[in-house]
Amino acid sequence: MGDTAKANRQEDPTARQRRVWDRMADSYDRQIGFAERRLLGGGREWLGTRAQGRVLEVAIGTGRSLPHYPTDADITGIELSPAMLAVARQRAADLGRPADLREGDAERLPFPEASFDTVVCALSLCTIPDPAAALDEMKRVLVPGGRLLLLDHVGSTWPPVYALQWLVERITMRTAGEHFTRRPLPLVRAAGFRVVETERLKAGLIERVHATKPGPA
Rank of each mutant, 00 (worst) to 15 (best):
D130E: 15
A211S: 02
G192M: 12
R19H: 10
L125N: 03
A106C: 07
A106N: 04
R208M: 10
I75A: 05
F180K: 04
W21S: 00
L201T: 14
E57M: 00
R170I: 07
L56Q: 10
Y162C: 10
A86P: 09
F193T: 07
W21K: 00
L47R: 04
W46C: 04
G41R: 15
T76S: 15
I206T: 14
V58E: 00
D26Q: 13
K139F: 10
R182K: 07
L85P: 09
T49N: 08
D94T: 12
T62E: 08
W166E: 12
A211K: 01
F111L: 05
R194W: 06
R102I: 03
D29Q: 09
A190S: 11
R50Q: 11
G48S: 03
R182W: 10
G42N: 04
G42M: 00
E103M: 08
A114R: 12
P159F: 10
R44E: 13
Q17Y: 02
H210E: 15
W166P: 01
A88E: 06
Q52P: 00
T157M: 09
P112K: 10
E197K: 14
L187D: 15
V195W: 02
S156G: 08
D94A: 15
I60F: 01
T4Q: 14
A114F: 02
A92R: 02
V188Q: 08
L149F: 08
D26L: 13
R91K: 15
G33P: 01
P67F: 03
M138C: 15
R37D: 11
I60R: 00
L187M: 14
M138R: 08
T157K: 12
D74Q: 14
P70W: 06
A191W: 04
A176G: 12
P159I: 12
D12S: 13
R200N: 09
T212W: 01
M1R: 05
P110M: 11
R183K: 11
R16C: 09
F116I: 05
Y69V: 10
A5R: 13
E45V: 03
